[in-house]
Nucleic acid binder design. Sequence first.
DNA 1: TGTGCCTACTCAACCGGTTCAGTCGAAATC
DNA 2: GATTTCGACTGAACCGGTTGAGTAGGCACA
Lengths: 339, 339
Amino acid sequence: MKRPTIADIARRAGVSKGAVSYALNGQPGVSEATRQRIIAIAQEIGFNPNSAARALSGATANAVGLALCRPARILGIEPFFMELISGVEAELSARSYALTLQVVADQEAEIAVYRRWWGERRVDGVFVCDLRVDDRRVPVLEELQLPAVVIGGPGHTGSLASVWADDAAALVETMEYLFALGHRRIARVGGLPGLLHTEIRRQAFVDAGQRLGLEQSVTVPSDYTGEEGARATRRFLSSSGRPTAIIYDNDVMAIAGLAVAQEMGLAVPGDLSIVAWDDSALCQLTHPPLTALGRDIPAYGAHAARQLLAAIEGKPIGAYQDETAHLTPRGSTAAPRPV
Amino acid sequence: MKRPTIADIARRAGVSKGAVSYALNGQPGVSEATRQRIIAIAQEIGFNPNSAARALSGATANAVGLALCRPARILGIEPFFMELISGVEAELSARSYALTLQVVADQEAEIAVYRRWWGERRVDGVFVCDLRVDDRRVPVLEELQLPAVVIGGPGHTGSLASVWADDAAALVETMEYLFALGHRRIARVGGLPGLLHTEIRRQAFVDAGQRLGLEQSVTVPSDYTGEEGARATRRFLSSSGRPTAIIYDNDVMAIAGLAVAQEMGLAVPGDLSIVAWDDSALCQLTHPPLTALGRDIPAYGAHAARQLLAAIEGKPIGAYQDETAHLTPRGSTAAPRPV
DNA sequence: TGTGCCTACTCAACCGGTTCAGTCGAAATC
DNA sequence: GATTTCGACTGAACCGGTTGAGTAGGCACA
């Protein structure tokens, strides 16, 4: 089946290729009558502009890129990326931009992908996920002058645009909530060390612990998997002066932690309170349901997409602060049992 | 920053554009010495072929498309797609093909996306997920002659290539396992009605129920969410002559079902055995851990990608049967308590 | 009547690759 | 020594859009 081109339309309308291009792109240079006639013909024969030809002449590929740097195993576990993608998509497809996805092994590979995309002119801009402290990807993107939106922050984004949420505030809110319940020994199972948001949460945890004058506030890193969450929980719970509350950096680890506590004969929330970051459907399915920090991830993705499209259009953009995660108290948190 | 082109390489090497093209693509027509010299220059200046120009002259876009037709909420819940994507990606990026993703609202929108992609020459082929009975997308793709691999089946794939797994066999294995344990009243919470694999599993369930001469074998559809899983479970468990085992079409519903059973004071596995389809990390985190039907989804995606790349190269391909899901017995299944 | 200006186009170059039809010189064949 | 053959390479067309320069015709104004 032969694909129709503007030459076909031009022939049928009895005008030149140029006139067809002007007409279909809403440019001046054709009369309204001719424009309507051309649009009608284009619709009739089901014309779609060849994206390659368009990208070759104009500078825009009408596509943006997203590189994910996580092992397959973890990508599956975390609803975060899929929700983010669906939010991004909603915004992009409204403007008929395509999303090009690539799963990479490490930062070096990711940088290579950016360079390749840039060289191939395959994308007009990219999203940067999992921002790190002094992220090496940032200077590369600045050098390439490839429009980019960093999903994360604040800080360490260089001159790139960004979308971020105030995780520190959300963590402090959680700490104060646990403190108000009477908890004085609080532990935390963090995410991958090196990721900026892990670092920000860790710092906020330590600071809040000091400010509130907690007896104990320990935090350990992990890798988001249930196994790691279980291991960390086991270690916390078998230490002397064990914590009465644990905050987990994602829901999967919190669920694993809940299982470990119950296995060890501890009552939740009687002996141990549990808070999960990321409020997915899973948090409501456990026994007891998990108190969780949640926010609208698809909306976060949509904001990021809007920022990126603006950046591609050359508009000056900066950092956009998304809503702060809010705490939904459920059955997994309560006052600690008096000793 | 100016992107290097083959013209730049040609100038530096003192040859024509054509010679550079031959050299870089491994075509005959240049001497080995010249080829090496050109490759060295290309590497030195960091050359990447402009994908638009390549797509415009050759017919290949070096990209394939995947349209997902599920609401954002459900996409996030299910690890399936993310795992599938990471498997697909592994295969594609090895051949430096890009994956273009699009989330669509319904089948009509998906068909429109295929037509647009085809018209825009944006992709060389597509993956078709969530195959339905008499799927309307199949004839459209046949008409467009757009290379496609259907992920699902068997059957209803028309002349398109496909990758499938024998879900019926896996379901029968599960039924026989439960039967051997002593279960005679088995229920099933299925997936979205209309999806072919839901239909295949339902039919296999009904057939096996009859063949084994079960006292009861009821199956209801759902939408994969925990809420629906919980609702269906509640209805099953409050009926007279309630089932002693329930098979769920995904892990999230199984976990929700487990919670419901425990809420209603039923012991798992004593009063109720539970089997989940899709063996994610979650299945091992519950109490008791869930007996589950699992298989290697990233590998499934990789096979699909290989099939699609072969189809794009014009090789004749048919249906590829992937491994059948295998049952991993865990703590959620046991012999039913004698009445 | 000539000049200026605007509208509505046409024409051709251009983007950066691929590919086919030649060309040129050297080696092989008779 | 003339002819054929072949390898190595050049030149130009081509893919399908976009875009700037050029132009014909109409109308207004002095």
